[in-house]
Design a protein around this nucleic acid. Structure first.
Lengths: 339, 339
DNA sequence: CTGAAAGCGCTTACAG
DNA sequence: CTGAAAGCGCTTACAG
């Protein structure tokens, strides 16, 4: 039904190999006039190469599969996801790769999941914040090139994260510097590396600075705005409440700000709030959000480059931690004097 | 190198057709014990079906290609894009489709571009805000199922937009109702339908309401925050300046707010600002943004469903306009009395 | 420089 | 219920 190299070959009375080599410009030489006629006929017949057939033979699809954590609804609403994807897509263009989003997740079995990822369409897989307990990475390792963004380190697989420990330390040091001692945290999902590490780093920093660490000032917000609102609302309703709260991402911080407002609290006067990521919204919120910036685009792009390097046979599986940067805005100030 | 149905057939001493039918559960019946042995052997050998080979024969990839307007850097930073993509991805999961992002654009020739999109990997193409002068749609029509989001209507192709005319009318009516007569606009890209229609609707509404329409209060902002800042800064520096500005999207509105602040103007006291889209940032900005909401997720999802219907042979190419909704927030108020 | 042929991993008529 | 074979549209040794 669609035009193939066979049609061109028949039309011209040459072999399909000649057509193939002419179309590809090599590697076998083709007589100039033959090549010209092949090209002209291809255009005349409106020939279009079939990427599938070529990939089936060459084993290269020039397509990278992106595997998000899990398909929660509104995946693309996540600033983490879009930030990384941005870097990935930009790098993909430079590297001549297309991006296949694996949006279907067969939760019934890891095997089905893994099979779906190994169906031949992608030359490599880029995992975005994989769950630490996901068996997928182990099942996949060695079977296809893989790079990991914001996941746990796996031997022989390149991985890219931000320096969570240092980032959280910057945030807590900032709050302590402002005079806070009663500091709480809204942590993220604890099956994700970023969730685990930021909570751990929070505890470590509080211990280091001798802050007033109370378990009721530690709550989970699932990395989502609503979770931040709910957990924050509960934490701020208690007495005594913290004078500052570190949130493991900006989305929870946004929810927390709303919770504070709902309780009639002023931000930052009554409660200082720090986020993480420096999502696009952070600078536009009211008040603008003090946050720990991680370079998500660079992270996604670096993972993409490492993946392509791996596909091309370049050895090396770097584990890179990107530096974080504390961005001080208007959501933090010194605590009020105790009454 | 990887395990194929041939390996299973050889292992069991049956034909590849039997293996194929057993694996697929039909359509040809396979004796129960044979089927069980095939399945067991497939698992034992760690067999994984090759999606490419199957697609090559069946002509169905269960993959939809998403074609963004153009690959500007930071594509995924656009709330329009992520909003639509969100709906697309959600619908894709429901419909059992994967999403291929066409990120490489061969700007050198429309033919090369079209060929890339017709390479066999996608069963259908979903265009996001295609340029009105792009030859791609005409070249592609009839060769592959297509659905269009926020593009111009093409006969026989399903298309989905919001009701730009009514949306802009709502915005201007709101401003006029507040007492504004000196109203300007920051328009978007004029090679996109949304850009064209919103500007046209602005002129129409101003004519209808008898507002003070001046050409120097009409400027282009390219749909980007920086463009909104630049064009807004210039417009607000002039004298007389408008008391209200309608922006063709929220990103430009955000830039315009910054421009107003940079000039020492208060929002909304000195200048009322209305956006379009109701992007996630709109409610979090300071001041929160009055804007015309269009249901981007629904729009993306509807386009996806129409595309799949088309692939499945269901006739009909609906041209649907989604209703807009005016969301009144804090960036608009009555103009100050003239001094 | 060129052609005939094998083969990538599948599906599916065709013939029992 | 099953096997042998053709074929999807390509690339690439093999043999001139």
């Amino acid at each position: 039904m669609s035009v193939t190299i066979k049609d061109i070959a028949r039309e011209l009375g040459v072999s399909v190999s000649t057509v193939s080599y002419a179309l590809n410009g090599g590697p076998r030489p083709v007589r100039d006039d033959v090549r010209d006629r092949v090209l002209a006929t291809a255009t005349a017949l409106d020939y279009r190469p079939n990427h599938l057939a070529r990939t089936l033979i060459t084993g290269r699809s020039f397509t990278i599969g992106v595997v998000p954590t899990e398909l929660t609804t509104n995946l693309t609403k996540s600033p983490y996801f879009t930030g990384c994807l941005d870097g990935i897509v930009n790098a993909a263009e430079v590297l001549g790769q297309d991006v296949l989003l694996y949006t279907r997740f067969d939760q019934t079995s890891p095997v089905a999941f893994v099979n779906a990822l190994l169906d031949g369409r992608a030359d490599g897989l880029l995992f975005l914040a994989p769950a630490v307990d996901s068996p997928a990475l182990e099942l996949l390792a060695g079977k296809i090139p893989i790079a990991i963004a914001s996941g746990k380190e796996v031997p022989d697989l390149p991985s890219f994260t931000c320096d969570n420990r240092h980032g959280v330390h910057q945030a807590i040091a900032h709050l302590v510097g402002l005079g806070h001692t009663r500091i709480g945290t809204l942590h993220g999902k604890l099956h994700l590396v970023d969730g685990i590490e930021r909570l751990k780093a929070f505890r470590a920093a509080m211990a280091e600075f001798g802050g007033d660490l109370r378990e009721e000032w530690i709550a989970g917000g699932d990395f989502h705005p609503q979770g931040g609102f709910d957990a924050g609302h509960q934490m701020l309703s208690k007495s005594p409440r913290p004078t500052a709260i570190f949130c493991a991402n900006d989305e929870m911080a946004a929810g927390l700000v709303q919770a504070a407002y709902a309780l009639g609290l002023a931000v930052p006067e009554d409660i200082s709030i720090v986020g993480f990521d420096d999502a696009p919204t952070a600078s536009m919120m009211h008040p603008s959000l003090t946050t720990v910036r991680q370079p998500l685009e660079e992270l996604g792009a670096a993972a993409m480059h490492a993946l392509i390097a791996q596909i091309n046979g370049d050895a090396g599986a770097p584990h890179i931690q990107f530096e974080t940067e504390l961005i001080i805005r208007k959501s933090t100030t010194s605590p009020k004097e105790d009454p």
